[in-house]
Write a protein that binds this DNA or RNA. Structure first.
Lengths: 204, 204
DNA sequence: TCCGCTACGCTACGACTCGTATCGGAAATC
DNA sequence: GATTTCCGATACGAGTCGTAGCGTAGCGGA
């Protein structure tokens, strides 16, 4: 999977019937450069000219593959969020604890801090970007909760998750609000108290 | 209260001992113009030159009162968030329902959608801005939950809120995530399900 | 082998924004 | 009236954006 999702030439393997194919490694280099520059200089400080230079690519190549900064960063961040994976630790609470700790670590990264909310802010005025954020980032995270719900069902008795979609909003929202909006840390005790608050009513 | 918080000349009533005082209405006009332009053109589309022109003020006047766009928008948004007030509807659940509906309406405004997350994103790389966002927006919202907790205590028996700070993160986070990040609507049924999930364990 | 097609690197460009500097004049206090 | 501070207007250098034009590189088909 060279790119998280197509950024222009998706679908066809060889490209548009003849002609020089797109450089294979360019996407990966560009997205990595974008993440690095986001971490170093933040959303505003990162220019597409800088990204191109660091990736060893012409600026025009970026514009050939992505419409603009926001769409490029969506793909760059999606790659990062895709590193999260569901864990099977034997119980809903154990699974949730692991997932939340992973999420906290991800939200603590500098590139996430500057890019994630900036993307959401831009998405408010750009339906296409809104759809991309939802599809490439939000929905994939949501699936982790659904996977946990299915495991809970399989285990049976007393651990079933009644409303995974709502539970996902609560988990992700609480952590994002605490870490990225309020800007306050989350320690293990906070996670414990959070799970004490939410899990009893979320499972049945 | 001309400005939500000082933006330069705070404290002294008359200004710096003699000389022409700052135009009283200018702050209000500037903040209103900023909100209007945020709603119309979004964070990126709003320039300080435009704000000055619409407020009927020179651009330099803006820079005399605020260090930059982010700080100005913090004050503009703080005025908006300050319109939220605690309600006393007789029970924790009734109070929470009203507060959440007010919050939803506020988060649905176009200026909030584009500005709130943009501010938080910038705050990630600017400690001063982070402090301003927390002090002028987040902490004031948090107080609404604390006020509700005190009312619950006064009512006694069975309605006490055990951890208001955590509850605030959960409420605000869930709504922000649902509305601004996932970009999906919140109807009354969602609020009901949310309160069913959270309130039982949050009160004692 | 030659040709058509597409992507590439490079350079240059106009339009725009930013934040600052500078100025004479206006509006208060002393 | 003198002083002090704020105000509006204008100009400016620096930097970014997204696009266009150029010649070249790499691939498949005739």
């Amino acid at each position: 999977m060279a790119s998280v999702t197509g950024n222009g030439r998706e679908g066809s393997e060889t490209g548009g019937r003849g002609g020089r194919p797109r450089s294979a490694g360019a996407d990966a280099a560009i997205l990595a450069a974008a993440r690095a520059l986001l971490a170093e200089r933040g959303w505003d400080g990162m220019t597409l000219g800088d990204v191109a230079a660091r990736a060893g690519v012409a600026k025009t190549t970026l514009y050939r593959r992505w419409p603009g900064k926001a769409e490029l960063v969506v793909d760059a961040m999606a790659q990062l969020f895709d590193t999260l994976e569901p864990a099977d630790a034997g119980s809903v609470r154990a699974d949730a604890t692991i997932a939340i700790r992973d999420l906290i670590a991800l939200l603590g990264r500098p590139e996430t801090q500057t890019a994630f909310l900036a993307l959401a802010a831009h998405a408010a005025r750009d339906p296409g970007l809104r759809a991309a954020v939802r599809e490439k980032i939000v929905d994939r995270q949501r699936r982790l909760v659904h996977a946990g719900a299915r495991r809970a069902d399989a285990r049976g008795e007393g651990g079933r998750i009644t409303d995974p979609d709502l539970l996902f909003d609560v988990i992700a929202g609480t952590m994002v609000h605490r870490l990225l909006i309020a800007g306050e840390p989350v320690d293990d005790g906070y996670v414990e108290r959070f799970l004490d608050l939410v899990l009893p009513a979320a499972t049945r």
